[in-house]
């Protein structure tokens, strides 16, 4: 098991607006506090895929080549709530060998809670 350096990323509502435009995901729960609360959410939340895109960015910044990734995914267990003043997520990756392949688990924390469960977002790298 080898660890990648921990990195912290800020998330603002402006980022979510930009991501909505770029991804086509205009679900209002990612932009509108009232609508988010009306469906039982604690407030505006980041798109799960925004956070997973940040994980992909993190992997790249840790030296993982896009073409080497055979799988990337995660289970969204806690939303990244983005108040008007913004939020922060912290990522720490750890790699382990699985047969011929390497599996990188990225633990993502927001307000001290795990965003992906149970072992973080997972990337599988080709040998």
């Amino acid at each position: 098991m080898s660890d990648f350096e921990t990195r912290t990323y800020s998330v603002t509502r402006a980022d979510l607006v930009a991501y909505a435009a770029a991804s086509g995901d205009h679900n209002p729960i990612h932009q509108d506090e009232e609508i988010a609360r009306s469906v039982g959410l604690p407030g505006v939340i980041a798109h799960g895929m925004f956070t997973l895109a940040l994980v992909a960015r993190y992997l790249g910044e840790c030296g993982v080549a896009t073409g080497d990734v055979s799988e990337l995914g995660g289970k969204f267990v806690k939303p990244v709530v983005v108040p008007a003043e913004g939020a922060e997520v912290t990522m720490t990756g750890s790699a382990r060998v699985d047969g011929d392949e390497t599996v990188v688990a990225v633990e993502v924390l927001c307000d001290g809670a795990k965003v992906f469960g149970p072992r973080g977002a997972q990337a599988r790298l080709r040998a």
Binding site: D15, A18, A22, S23, M49, F50, L52, L54, R57, T66
Partner: peptide
């Protein structure tokens, strides 16, 4: 499209493969 997607998560696209989660755009 790749440049906009990359920029929205604070990256710059400078050619080569698309960001890993980009397939969510047509999938969405």
């Amino acid at each position: 499209a790749l440049a906009d997607f990359a920029a929205s998560v604070g990256q710059s696209y400078d050619g080569g493969p698309a960001p890993l989660t980009f397939p969510i755009v047509p999938a969405f």
